[in-house]
Design a protein around this nucleic acid. Structure first.
Length: 101
DNA sequence: TGTGTGACGATCG
DNA sequence: GCGATCGCCACAC
Protein backbone atom coordinates (compact mmCIF):
# COMPACT_ATOMS: atom_id res chain seq x y z
CA UNK A 1 0.00 0.00 0.00
CA UNK A 2 2.44 2.64 -1.14
CA UNK A 3 1.94 5.94 -2.90
CA UNK A 4 2.43 4.30 -6.30
CA UNK A 5 -0.65 2.23 -5.75
CA UNK A 6 -2.50 5.33 -4.67
CA UNK A 7 -1.40 7.25 -7.77
CA UNK A 8 -2.36 4.34 -10.00
CA UNK A 9 -5.78 4.13 -8.37
CA UNK A 10 -6.28 7.86 -8.85
CA UNK A 11 -5.44 7.71 -12.54
CA UNK A 12 -7.63 4.66 -13.01
CA UNK A 13 -10.56 6.48 -11.40
CA UNK A 14 -9.90 9.58 -13.51
CA UNK A 15 -9.88 7.43 -16.63
CA UNK A 16 -13.23 5.92 -15.55
CA UNK A 17 -14.96 9.31 -15.56
CA UNK A 18 -17.46 9.30 -18.46
CA UNK A 19 -17.47 12.08 -21.02
CA UNK A 20 -19.50 15.08 -19.94
CA UNK A 21 -19.04 14.25 -16.25
CA UNK A 22 -16.64 15.49 -13.61
CA UNK A 23 -15.47 14.39 -10.19
CA UNK A 24 -14.07 16.06 -7.12
CA UNK A 25 -10.77 15.64 -5.36
CA UNK A 26 -12.62 14.32 -2.34
CA UNK A 27 -14.26 11.47 -4.27
CA UNK A 28 -10.94 10.53 -5.83
CA UNK A 29 -9.34 10.64 -2.41
CA UNK A 30 -11.99 8.37 -0.94
CA UNK A 31 -11.72 6.04 -3.94
CA UNK A 32 -7.94 5.90 -3.81
CA UNK A 33 -7.83 5.73 -0.04
CA UNK A 34 -5.98 8.97 0.57
CA UNK A 35 -6.58 12.64 1.20
CA UNK A 36 -7.77 15.28 -1.26
CA UNK A 37 -4.48 17.20 -1.06
CA UNK A 38 -2.63 14.13 -2.24
CA UNK A 39 -4.81 13.99 -5.33
CA UNK A 40 -3.72 17.44 -6.39
CA UNK A 41 -0.11 16.57 -5.67
CA UNK A 42 -0.30 13.41 -7.75
CA UNK A 43 -1.99 15.14 -10.66
CA UNK A 44 0.56 17.93 -10.57
CA UNK A 45 3.46 15.47 -10.34
CA UNK A 46 2.23 13.26 -13.18
CA UNK A 47 1.54 15.67 -16.01
CA UNK A 48 -0.08 13.52 -18.70
CA UNK A 49 -3.07 15.42 -20.15
CA UNK A 50 -2.99 13.20 -23.25
CA UNK A 51 -3.43 10.04 -21.21
CA UNK A 52 -5.44 11.19 -18.21
CA UNK A 53 -8.25 13.80 -18.44
CA UNK A 54 -7.24 15.69 -15.33
CA UNK A 55 -9.45 18.56 -16.49
CA UNK A 56 -12.44 16.52 -15.29
CA UNK A 57 -11.24 16.87 -11.72
CA UNK A 58 -12.75 19.86 -9.91
CA UNK A 59 -13.33 21.03 -6.35
CA UNK A 60 -16.02 19.52 -4.16
CA UNK A 61 -18.13 22.65 -4.59
CA UNK A 62 -18.00 22.42 -8.39
CA UNK A 63 -15.41 25.13 -9.00
CA UNK A 64 -12.33 24.57 -11.10
CA UNK A 65 -9.00 23.81 -9.49
CA UNK A 66 -7.31 26.90 -10.88
CA UNK A 67 -3.93 25.23 -10.88
CA UNK A 68 -4.48 23.70 -14.27
CA UNK A 69 -1.05 23.94 -15.86
CA UNK A 70 -2.19 23.04 -19.38
CA UNK A 71 -3.44 26.49 -20.31
CA UNK A 72 -5.16 27.78 -17.18
CA UNK A 73 -8.70 27.41 -15.81
CA UNK A 74 -10.19 28.99 -18.95
CA UNK A 75 -8.74 26.18 -21.06
CA UNK A 76 -10.09 23.65 -18.60
CA UNK A 77 -13.55 25.22 -18.68
CA UNK A 78 -13.53 25.34 -22.46
CA UNK A 79 -12.57 21.67 -22.59
CA UNK A 80 -15.37 20.70 -20.20
CA UNK A 81 -17.88 22.75 -22.18
CA UNK A 82 -16.78 20.94 -25.30
CA UNK A 83 -17.65 17.67 -23.55
CA UNK A 84 -21.14 18.92 -22.72
CA UNK A 85 -20.66 20.38 -19.25
CA UNK A 86 -22.60 23.60 -18.75
CA UNK A 87 -21.15 26.24 -16.43
CA UNK A 88 -23.64 28.09 -14.28
CA UNK A 89 -21.15 30.70 -13.16
CA UNK A 90 -17.58 31.71 -13.91
CA UNK A 91 -15.58 28.50 -13.61
CA UNK A 92 -18.39 26.79 -11.72
CA UNK A 93 -20.73 23.91 -12.54
CA UNK A 94 -23.68 22.22 -10.89
CA UNK A 95 -23.26 19.09 -8.81
CA UNK A 96 -25.45 17.30 -11.35
CA UNK A 97 -22.32 16.67 -13.41
CA UNK A 98 -20.57 15.01 -10.51
CA UNK A 99 -19.88 11.35 -11.22
CA UNK A 100 -19.93 9.17 -8.12
CA UNK A 101 -18.03 5.90 -8.29
C1' DT B 1 14.78 13.91 11.67
C1' DG B 2 12.25 18.12 11.53
C1' DT B 3 10.02 22.05 9.21
C1' DG B 4 7.56 24.10 5.48
C1' DT B 5 4.55 23.95 1.63
C1' DG B 6 0.73 22.69 -1.66
C1' DA B 7 -4.06 21.21 -8.50
C1' DC B 8 -7.93 20.72 -1.25
C1' DG B 9 -11.97 20.29 2.25
C1' DA B 10 -14.59 21.79 5.87
C1' DT B 11 -15.67 25.14 9.35
C1' DC B 12 -15.91 29.74 11.43
C1' DG B 13 -16.58 34.84 11.37
C1' DG C 1 -21.94 34.64 -0.07
C1' DC C 2 -17.02 35.37 0.76
C1' DG C 3 -12.58 35.52 3.16
C1' DA C 4 -9.73 33.61 6.72
C1' DT C 5 -8.10 29.60 9.47
C1' DC C 6 -7.25 24.82 10.67
C1' DG C 7 -6.59 20.06 9.40
C1' DC C 8 -5.33 16.72 6.41
C1' DC C 9 -1.33 13.58 3.78
C1' DA C 10 2.78 13.31 0.87
C1' DC C 11 7.01 15.41 -0.59
C1' DA C 12 11.09 18.80 -0.97
C1' DC C 13 14.73 20.97 1.57
Amino acid sequence: MNMEHIADSVFQLVARIPKGKVTSYKDLALGAGTHARVIGRILHTNVDPKKYPCHRVVHSDGSLAGGYVFGGPSKQQQRLEDEGVVFTSKHKITKDYFFHF
